[in-house]
Amino acid sequence: MKQQITTFLTFQGNNAEEAMNFYVELFDNSKVINVQRYGKDGPGLEGTIVKAIFELNGTPFICSDSFIKHEWSFTPAVSSWVECNTKEEIEHLYAKLSENGDVKMPLDNYGFSKQFAFVEDRFGVSWQLNLE
């Protein structure tokens, strides 16, 4: 069996499905593949996600709603790098991902690329957007 490494997003606000659907709508060539939900007998809130598998532009991701409240959440030290093909694409992604989020580095020319931005979206997930 081939080993595969997949990004796993653990949400603590029972908003994994909202985040997953937001990302799938935002990125081309994306889809939800499988969703497993907690039932009425728990341990998580009924209807929230035990494990969901989805793809963003063909790249696999997994997410869940953690019923255990951890002392940690997402950190900007780990982020997803998005290589954009056009100025319109990076501007669109920047606008959508930064809405109600936290802009770490606004969209600008930082010398290492034509356009670059570092944002933490409203769910706490960090994204680096790049236009070569």
Rank of each mutant, 00 (worst) to 15 (best):
K2F: 14
F67T: 01
F61S: 09
K114R: 12
I68A: 08
I53E: 15
P60N: 10
E120H: 01
I33H: 09
S98K: 15
L107H: 03
E99L: 12
C63S: 06
W81L: 15
E71A: 12
S126H: 01
E25C: 08
E89G: 05
E91C: 05
N14D: 15
H70M: 08
L129Q: 06
V50C: 08
N21F: 02
A16R: 00
W81S: 13
I33M: 14
L26G: 07
I90K: 12
K69E: 14
N109I: 12
C63V: 11
K40H: 13
D108I: 09
D41E: 15
E55V: 02
M20S: 02
Y23A: 11
F74L: 04
E18A: 13
Q4R: 13
Q36K: 11
E25T: 12
L93A: 01
E132V: 08
K51P: 00
G124I: 03
S126W: 07
V78T: 15
P43W: 06
L45C: 06
V125E: 03
V78D: 00
L9H: 00
I53V: 12
K114L: 15
F74K: 00
N85W: 04
F118K: 02
K31A: 15
L45G: 04
F67R: 04
T59V: 15
K40Q: 13
F116E: 10
F61W: 06
A16Q: 02
T10N: 14
S30G: 03
T6H: 10
E91M: 09
F54G: 09
Y23W: 08
F61Q: 08
V82Q: 03
F116K: 12
N34A: 13
N21D: 13
L131I: 07
S30E: 01
E99N: 14
H70A: 11
T59L: 13
F22G: 10
L9Y: 00
D41H: 12
E17S: 05
Q36V: 08
S64Q: 11
R37V: 01
T59R: 09
S126E: 06
T10Q: 10
